[in-house]
């Protein structure tokens, strides 16, 4: 059932994302063509670059909005009549939304990078850029004797955890807002602010904890020892992962036991 839920979630959202991805790639290709035939546009390069950057930022924002809106409308809103009467467990419903939203987030990042590569390639800069990145990467690996496979894995995992954390926090806030009989949208906003506040408090407590562990107050923040930095990042990933799990459990509890579709 989970697979089927994810399949329909992709089918529903594909109609939004694929055309936009098409526009981004198309936009890059048009610029490549203009460059190729040396056509001078009446716009300056600056305007083109700005448009491009805005397009990409817009798409990223849209990815977040669609992810949030799918959950709100499809589970807690009008489409919930169909979704919540399906013989599937609520955790699967939530997971299908989360999985799809995080996937599109990755999709948007990849499309952005591809578009960027096309631009760079057309200006003959791709190779240079790539070589620079490689050089920097290799020197880092050497200097700190890191394992590059491990590092890539870690970066990917970090993005996944951050994305899950971000979406689940909003899901959780909307689920808490759903507990109220009226003004559910406003309640969701307030719940989000509340969650944000709690997370800040936790962060401060953790930070103070570090100060004791490492000793010497907040000096550890400026410590150049990469091992300390790694420990901090690892711990933060664990912290966010735990919070994400809590958000998931709370959201699931509310959808399963406290649903009230008006």
């Amino acid at each position: 059932m989970l697979g089927k839920l994810i399949k329909y979630e992709f089918k529903s959202t594909m109609r939004i994302f694929l055309p936009i991805y098409g526009v981004i790639i198309g936009f890059s290709l048009i610029q490549v063509l203009l460059d190729l035939f040396n056509i001078k546009m009446i716009f300056s390069d600056g305007i083109l670059v700005t448009t491009y950057v805005l397009l990409i930022i817009g798409t990223l924002v849209l990815t977040l909005i669609v992810g949030i809106q799918r959950f709100f409308k499809n589970i807690l809103g009008t489409e919930g009549y169909l979704m919540n009467t399906l013989p599937v467990k609520s955790w699967k419903l939530i997971f299908s939304k989360l999985f799809t939203s995080v996937s599109w987030f990755f999709g948007t990042v990849l499309i952005t990078l591809s578009a960027l590569s096309i631009q760079l390639a057309s200006r003959g800069m791709l190779q240079d850029t790539w070589e620079n990145i490689e050089l920097l990467w290799n020197s880092l690996m050497l200097q700190y004797s890191w394992n590059s496979g491990l590092l890539i894995g870690k970066i990917v995992m970090m993005i996944v955890i951050y994305a899950c954390y971000g979406f689940l926090m909003v899901y959780c806030a909307m689920a808490i807002g759903h507990l109220f009989n009226s003004n559910r949208i406003i309640s969701s906003f307030i719940a989000y602010i509340g969650l944000y506040f709690i997370v800040q408090v936790i962060s401060v407590v953790v930070l103070v904890g570090y100060a004791f562990v490492f000793g010497g107050g907040i000096d550890f923040l400026t410590n150049s020892n990469p091992d300390v930095a790694f420990t901090l990042i690892n711990n933060q990933m664990i912290e966010m992962g735990l919070l994400a799990v809590i958000y998931y459990l709370v959201t699931n509890y509310i959808v399963k036991k406290r649903l009230n579709l008006e």
Binding site: S12, R15, T78, E79, Y81, L82, T85, L86, P87, V88, K89, S90, K256
Partner: peptide, 21 residues
């Protein structure tokens, strides 16, 4: 009432509830 009962209950809401797309 839960996921198990939903597999034997057929529900017709009083409004349009299918996905328009």
């Amino acid at each position: 009432v839960g996921a198990d009962t939903k597999s034997i209950v057929s529900y017709l809401p009083d409004a349009n509830y299918l996905f328009d797309w």
